[in-house]
Amino acid sequence: MTQTISKSGLSDLRSKDEIRAERRKGRTGIYLVAPGLLVLALFFALPVVVLLAMSLYVKPPGAEIGEFVPGFEIGNYMTVLSAYWPELLRSFWFALIATVLALLIGFPMAYLVAVRLREKPLLQGILLVLLIAPFFSSFILRTQAWKQILADEGFIAQALKFVAILPADGHLTATPFAVVAGLTYNFLPFMVLPIYANLGRLDTRLLEAAGDLYASPMNSFFRITLPMSAPGIFAGTLLTFIPAAGDYVNSALLGNNRNTTMIGQVIDSRFFKVIDYPGAAALSFVLMVSILVLVTIYIRRFGTKELM
């Protein structure tokens, strides 16, 4: 038996076997997480720091395009924010609408597959595959397909014009509508899958019990099904909102005009077309922090521990 005084000041009364067992567990734990954590530290945490540093770089007088030196130019943030705050707000706005739409469309899908088709595993399996398989057909290809389906010469636009829902000179593409529809479409599986996973565990006997206790179907939906699937909805909304806010493929392919530009597009063009690294970095950082703030508020308000 060893008796040592541990750091906390409490007397450490563990035996050598206990200490050894604990050390072994600790060591195995470290071995298991260390390689992955190293990768995350080197290629996620460190890059974010580098990005932060880069956002403060300054352009020396008379420098060539793309030449910057380390500095501490907070003004970079003022410059990009004053120029691009509309795009930033629009990104969040579009992402929010797309998330709500995806939830409204996705919940019935998840419910259909997870609960209604529980007794039909084959059909359930096929629909589940249909949710995942689109990933493999390339989302840019699908977005491009939407562009062509919704094109001015396309069947849908023509039909809408024929019944005069769409004015003769109206467009479906190059509109905020098209961009939001594209975002909704592309991130729908991210909404459905977590909800599906949650509803899959829903015990339908609970609903029967509720019905037995005189709850109307509406009532038992809002009192049981919805609260029980809350963690799934929570995860789904985050998994939809976050990538949607940063996306620029949809706005580039389906929008591509001044009133659909999203912040991702701006960051991309700052980086690659304008070669304004500090500006692009500052915008990226602003985007990251605003999302973290929004997500934190959201988690505080509605969060379950389950996600973390």
Binding site: M1, L13, R14, S15, D17, E18, R20, A21
Partner: peptide
């Protein structure tokens, strides 16, 4: 069974 080490 050896699944837990005794303290003493």
């Amino acid at each position: 069974a050896g699944l837990e080490a005794p303290s003493e």
